[in-house]
Nucleic acid binder design. Structure first.
Lengths: 186, 186
DNA sequence: AATCCTATCTTGCCATTGACAAGATGCGCC
DNA sequence: GGCGCATCTTGTCAATGGCAAGATAGGATT
């Protein structure tokens, strides 16, 4: 994936994060093993500790990256609430590993400054999408509307990832999400 | 908690499940330790394996119990979709340990017969709540409506548990959930 | 009543893991 | 040229999950 040439004087940190993303995608965030990451990166078992302190530290960095990526994704669909919701679900499915870490704060340090900043950016993108919509319709309560929009998109994404949805929903998350999210706009 | 007198010829299985529920509430489902459960129950470290095979087996049993409890909870508010949604969120908050296990299928055996049956009962209770509502209003699409209702309730519950919601939401989950869920009924 | 038998629980063991401590290595800076 | 610091390695320890083999007890069979 990312540049893996320059160990011992370069981007071990980045390589470890890439390996972690891969590993989380394979075994989930809870079963992540630092020693496995070290093996994937070709370094000793204690190398990760130097860059991230412990497992929680590494997942904190991953979560922060994820929130930044989400903020960026949401910003691209900023003027259309429905599309922002679809983008949210699509993010969850496409970047499942990020998503699964981001909303499991017991696995990382929720008080990390960088993480809080990134999460704030994502939240801002979400709210501005809702605000854009309500300005075009009734004066509605933006707080409540953004909560409702976030909840329905997040719930659908979570249920999708958990495999909890019935088969009839199909296998196209964007399409299925659009149908459900439209329920809010009526 | 539960009757702990009759070991060695009684309800170790039940005692272990009770201990597991407690432990999950304290450290989360991923950090659950079988050996810790054994200590809590006052038995040897290998005793749990006999009743549940492995950690996944134990969590499967816990999830099945949880789905049954949820089905029962939803059935009590069956004729009112809004109240069913509130009950769903309330269940997640009140029985957090159950909820956290139930929707993390990578931790248990999703193909377990008992579990599938229990999950089916819960799903049925949910859908019948939605059907009851739409019969009173427009002819609407029950499939889509139940998905939307489930998504918004599940999403709100999940975000609440993750501590992801902004402070202004307050500290009363039932009340906050009711406000958000009402957004679907308008 | 004696025996078997099966479910239940224990003891012992091994590989893996996270975390810590101490040491090696090498790059840049004075 | 030498020093210092960041980076990485080696070694170690306690805890865990899971397996295997053995002990124990209560009930059924004869």
């Amino acid at each position: 994936m990312t540049d893996t040439r320059a160990y011992h004087h370069g981007d071990l940190r980045r390589a470890l994060l890439a390996a972690a993303l891969e590993a989380v995608g394979e075994v989930g965030p809870a079963a992540l093993s630092l020693r496995d990451l070290a093996r994937r990166a070709g370094v000793s078992h204690a190398a990760p500790a130097h860059h991230f302190g412990d497992k929680a530290g590494l997942l904190t960095a991953l979560a922060a990256q994820g929130f930044d990526l989400l903020a960026q994704t949401l910003a691209e669909a900023d003027d259309d609430l429905l599309e922002a919701g679809v983008a949210y679900v699509d993010f969850a499915v496409t970047h499942r590993a990020y998503f699964e870490v981001m909303f499991r704060p017991e696995l990382y340090r929720a008080d990390d400054a960088e993480l809080i900043a990134a999460r704030g950016r994502a939240g801002g993108a979400l709210r501005s999408g809702v605000a854009a919509l309500s300005s075009g319709g009734a004066p509605a309560d933006t707080d409540r509307d953004s909560l409702a929009a976030w909840s329905i998109a997040h719930g659908f994404a979570t249920l999708w990832l958990a495999g909890a949805l019935p088969d009839r929903v199909g296998d196209n998350p964007r399409e299925a999400a659009r149908a459900v999210l439209r329920r809010l706009s009526t």
